[in-house]
Design a protein around this nucleic acid. Sequence first.
DNA 1: AGACTATAGTCTCTTTAAGAGACTTACTAT
DNA 2: ATAGTAAGTCTCTTAAAGAGACTATAGTCT
Lengths: 170, 170
Amino acid sequence: MQRTTFSDQHCSVARTLDIIGEWWTLMILRDIFYGVHRFEALLTQLGISRKVLTQRLQRLTDEKILRKVAYQQNPPRYEYRLTARGIDIMPVLLSIMRWGDRWLSEDKQVPVEFVHTECGEVVVPKVVCGHCEGELSIRNLVPRPGLGSAEEEIKSMREASSNPELFKLS
Amino acid sequence: MQRTTFSDQHCSVARTLDIIGEWWTLMILRDIFYGVHRFEALLTQLGISRKVLTQRLQRLTDEKILRKVAYQQNPPRYEYRLTARGIDIMPVLLSIMRWGDRWLSEDKQVPVEFVHTECGEVVVPKVVCGHCEGELSIRNLVPRPGLGSAEEEIKSMREASSNPELFKLS
DNA sequence: AGACTATAGTCTCTTTAAGAGACTTACTAT
DNA sequence: ATAGTAAGTCTCTTAAAGAGACTATAGTCT
C-alpha cells in the first residue's frame, strides 16, 4: 500500500483519521467498547490476523487511546483498556452506528444496542450544536476558513457557501 | 492488502466501515462537504493518486452516497454531489473533527470551522440521546445484545456491563 | 490548419501492507 | 511428561496504493 499520511494537511479530520482511520482500528475499538479486552478474544471476535492486531494495538497504545493493564503475572498477561482519549472516541462510533442503522438495515437484526441508563431507552444518537443544542445539518452549517487555512481552501469554501445548488438532494 | 470485508459481522459499524472506512474515503467526503466537487480539484486538494480517487468516487457513487451531475456537455464533464445518504454522513465527520480538535490540537491553527447559522456560533458538535437529549458517555451507556446477536457477544457484554473496573480511566 | 489547454479519466510498474498460518515463550494443569 | 493457554513473532504470498505516463474529447489561440 505504501500509504501516505494525511497529517500534513493539519486538519483535525485528517489527523484523527491518521490514527483511527486505519483498516481494523475502529472495529477493534468497537469490540473494546463492547467489553472485549484481550488479545485472543479480539482475534476470534474480529477474524483479524495476529500480525495486524498486534500492530493496531501497539499503535493505539502509543497514541494513548488504549493502555495495557496486567491482569496476571507469571506469565505476564495484559488486557487493553480505554484511556480518557479512548473513551472519547465513542461519539465517533455512535455516529457511525447511527448511519448504518438508518441506511443499511434492510433487516432489523441489530446485534448490539446501547441503552441509555439516564432515560432507559435504546439510544438513537443525535449530533447537536454544543451552544444552542439545535440540530446540525448541512443546511444550517457554513464552512468557514479558520486561522490555519490555505488559499485554495478559502476559495472553494466561498464558492460552496454562496451556491445552495451544490447541496440539492438527488 | 487482499482485504477482507467486515460485513459478515452484520453489525451497523462493520457494514458502514466497509463503505466509508476505506483509506481516503472520509477525506474525500470531507472535501466535498467543504465544497470541492470536481475530480481535478479533489486530486490537487488531497494529494491522492488518480487511480484511487477514481475507485473511491466510483464506490461512493455505487453506494448512492455521491451522484454524478453533468455541469457541461461537449465534452461531458461531471461533478460529484452528495445525496441524502451522503449528507447524513456529516455527523460522522463532525464527531471525528471534534475528537481531533479536543485531543490533537497542540497549536490552535484550525483550517476550517463550521458556523451554525441558527445560533451564529462556531460549532462544537455534541452527541446526545435522541430520546431525552441527555449527554451520552461510556458511564451511562450499557451495551445490550440485540436480536441478531451471537452467543460470544452476549457473554462478553454481560462481563463488561457488570464490571465497572473495565472503564476506569488511566 | 496546427498547436495548445483543460478535464476526467485509464494503464503500467513498483512498493508495501494485509492475510494465512506455523512457530515461540513461559507458565499451569493433569 | 504431555497438553494447554495467552500473547505474541516470523515467513511467505497476494492484493492494494503510489507515481506518473498516456488517452479522449472538446474548445481556444495564432
